Simulated assay, not measured.
Amino acid sequence: MARFTGKVAIITGSSSGIGRATALLLASEGAKVTITGRDEGRLDESRKAILQAGVAKANVNAIVADVTSAQGQDLLISSTLKKFGRIDILINNAGANIPDPSGKTRVDCTIDNLQEMFKLNLQSVVEITQKARPHLAKSRGEIVNISSIGAGPSAQPQSVYYSSAKAALDQYSRCAAIDLISEGIRINVVQPGFVSTGFSTAARGLSSDESLKFYNGMGELPHCIPAGYCGQPDHLASVIAFLADRKASEYIVGQTIIADGGTSLVLGMHANFGQKK
């Protein structure tokens, strides 16, 4: 029997990248999944990828929703319960390093940009966790929050607000893990480094080819990614699935797994972003 047979998982930000890969992996291993994103076209691509892997249509719940809105959060919870009857796993993957519309960067970014960054990368996680909590308590469920090596301890001057929001997410996850383990709810964190998803290049306006070249180039630089190659969404999906599988990781509570090919150990990647002039 597949390891997630009988389990129901919500994966936010699953219309592309790590979220899509995670939803595909969990569904392929027996889970019934709610996938979600704001872009209907990309979300449908995720749905089709899951079905093409041999997953039954009845095991996929695709919901177009904005996780930063109360309506979007409520829809994810209610539609999952209506279709599947329970919630066992919550993967809080949705997040972004949102460019400041004013064009400002680093510590010059506006306060509006700060608030928007925290609303998506921290507040939405807190809110959906609160709403999923009673259902996860019933199932003695799992929460995996997706952070970033940008959270520290090394400084990230090129993404001050994003990194700060992810650092706050990490501490929230630790505190909530201790608070909720008595209810049987287990919370852990995954910190990705560079992953070839377009995440790090979207703000730069790079094309698909330029983005691929960027990630491949970073992977060839040992002072950036010692492993010698850039991570793929599947690499992170495997780590997330490990933490979502209680049989495999039940004694891990409130911890952070760094999956970055060694980047955070060498601290050399800043050289490729340039220094403030």
Score class of each variant (00 low, 15 high):
I149A: 02
L122G: 01
G30K: 05
R174H: 01
G231W: 04
I89E: 00
A21D: 05
L90A: 04
V125Y: 01
E116M: 11
N188I: 00
I257A: 00
N59E: 10
T80A: 07
A248H: 04
L212F: 13
S249M: 09
G54F: 06
Q232S: 09
Q171T: 05
K104N: 15
S208W: 04
E40M: 08
I87D: 11
A176M: 14
S154C: 12
Q191S: 06
E183N: 05
M269D: 06
S16K: 08
G85R: 10
Q130C: 10
S124P: 02
G193T: 01
I111R: 10
M1P: 14
K32V: 12
F118R: 11
I10V: 13
K32W: 05
T263Y: 05
M1F: 15
I240H: 01
I258Y: 01
R174T: 00
S124V: 11
Q158D: 13
K276N: 10
A62T: 06
I225D: 09
I91E: 00
D39Q: 10
G217M: 12
V189T: 01
L76C: 04
Q158M: 12
T263I: 02
N61Q: 15
N92H: 08
E142F: 03
A177G: 03
G198N: 11
G54N: 07
Y229T: 10
N188D: 01
V125R: 02
S211V: 11
L90R: 02
D170R: 02
A137T: 13
S182H: 10
Y215Q: 12
N61Y: 09
Q171E: 06
A58C: 13
D234A: 14
C175Q: 07
H135T: 04
P134W: 09
L43H: 03
F214T: 09
D44H: 11
L75G: 00
Y251F: 15
V33E: 03
E29T: 11
Q191V: 00
G150P: 00
P99A: 06
S102L: 15
T12V: 13
V107L: 11
H235D: 15
I128P: 06
T12L: 07
I91K: 04
S14L: 11
E45K: 12
T129M: 07
L212K: 15
L25C: 08
A56V: 14
G103Y: 11
K48A: 13
I111K: 12
G274H: 06
Q73V: 12
R86D: 03
S249E: 08
S211Q: 05
V125K: 04
S173A: 00
G13P: 01
F242H: 02
Q123W: 09
G198M: 09
P153E: 07
R140L: 10
R204H: 12
K213D: 13
L26C: 09
D245G: 06
S164I: 04
D179A: 14
T201E: 04
G141L: 04
D44E: 13
A49L: 12
P153G: 13
M269K: 05
D209H: 09
K82Y: 09
P157C: 08
V67H: 03
I77S: 02
Q73L: 12
M269F: 10
I240W: 00
A70E: 15
Q52E: 15
D209T: 14
V107T: 13
A9S: 08
L267G: 06
V239T: 03
I89P: 03
L236V: 15
L221V: 05
T105C: 07
S264I: 12
